[in-house]
């Protein structure tokens, strides 16, 4: 008996939109396609370049080099955290920890509003599981982040000559980040289809977020210098917890703040489900406007 597909305008029942099981059921059958697309996206990024996918490693190294040059050599900014015994070396590692996580989120948030619109063919010409496009985007960004973290770990070994055992917690720290990013990506992708204004606003928001996130500075510095009653603003930013936990487990050798990560994971799961619900509820109208 062949499968029957039904096309109607019936809205998906609310319990489906808000069910994590439905979310999984909407992705699981397409895992091969997701993986295929992630690889293609990765390949496409470096297609035509003479050095090819070597750039996946070279690019973060170059960026690390630029920031090291500007902040450590020119501006001589120092973090004296006592990890390396070299305040400028500390800065490079601290910065890189934050930069990888922030880039992962910023790239996804920046591309999400156009992730559906730019694949017009897939929306209007073929029956395609559109919900995987944001997943592919996050997956491909994660792939690049993983390369970044590998470089980070190597850099830690080179600069400090050792690596804390707590670095093994890194994957756990990244779980809420990936969940949150995917939720935001679904949300922004759906909004971006109907309102092209979203993609204009996002770069400014990301810029603001960059300064609200402890990328260029350690959180402790801000906590010391700002009145305590404003601290909650910093913790509202999910990237703060992720980045500080990364620094704790990879550089300092402390256990990450599991309580904070746990709460963040729960919040991220809510964001994920909301993003999925909005995306699923609206996707039947995508082809009317794309």
């Amino acid at each position: 008996m062949t499968e029957v597909a039904i096309r109607t305008n019936d809205a998906a029942p609310a319990f489906r939109l808000f069910s994590p099981l439905a979310l999984l059921a909407d992705l699981a059958p397409h895992r091969r396609l997701i993986w295929l697309f992630v690889r293609r996206e990765f390949a496409q990024r470096y297609r035509g370049a003479t050095l090819g996918s070597l750039w996946a490693v070279l690019q973060p190294l170059l960026i690390l080099g630029v920031y090291t040059l500007v902040f450590s050599v020119v501006l001589q900014i120092e973090f004296d955290s006592g990890i390396t015994g070299n305040p400028q070396g500390d800065f490079v590692l601290f910065f890189f920890c934050g930069w990888i996580a922030f880039t992962l989120f910023a790239e996804c948030a920046g591309q999400a509003p156009i992730s559906i619109v730019r694949r017009q063919n897939l929306v209007t010409k073929v029956v395609f599981p559109l919900q995987i496009l944001p997943v592919v985007m996050v997956g491909s960004a994660l792939l690049r982040a993983v390369i970044g973290y590998c470089i980070l770990l190597v850099a830690v070994v080179i600069i400090t000559g050792r690596i804390p055992i707590t670095a093994l917690y890194l994957p756990v720290v990244l779980v809420p980040l990936v969940i949150f990013t995917l939720g935001a990506a679904w949300l922004l992708a759906a909004l971006g289809v109907f309102w092209r204004d979203v993609r204009q606003v996002i770069p400014a928001v990301i810029r603001l977020l960059l300064f609200l996130t402890p990328v260029f500075y350690p959180l402790a510095l801000v906590l010391r210098r700002t009145p305590e009653k404003y601290h909650w603003v910093l913790y509202l930013n999910p990237l703060t917890t992720v980045i500080e936990s990364t620094r704790a487990c990879v550089l300092v050798g402390r256990h990450p703040d599991f309580a904070a990560l746990g709460i963040l994971t729960l919040v991220s799961l809510v964001v994920l489900q909301l993003g999925y619900a909005l995306f699923s509820a609206w996707r039947k109208d995508f082809s009317d406007v794309v």
Binding site: I6, R7, T8, N9, V123, T124, D285, S287
Partner: peptide, 10 residues
């Protein structure tokens, strides 16, 4: 690829 406003297609 398009959702019907009314009716159904199978």
């Amino acid at each position: 690829t398009l959702t019907p406003t009314e009716g159904r297609a199978e």
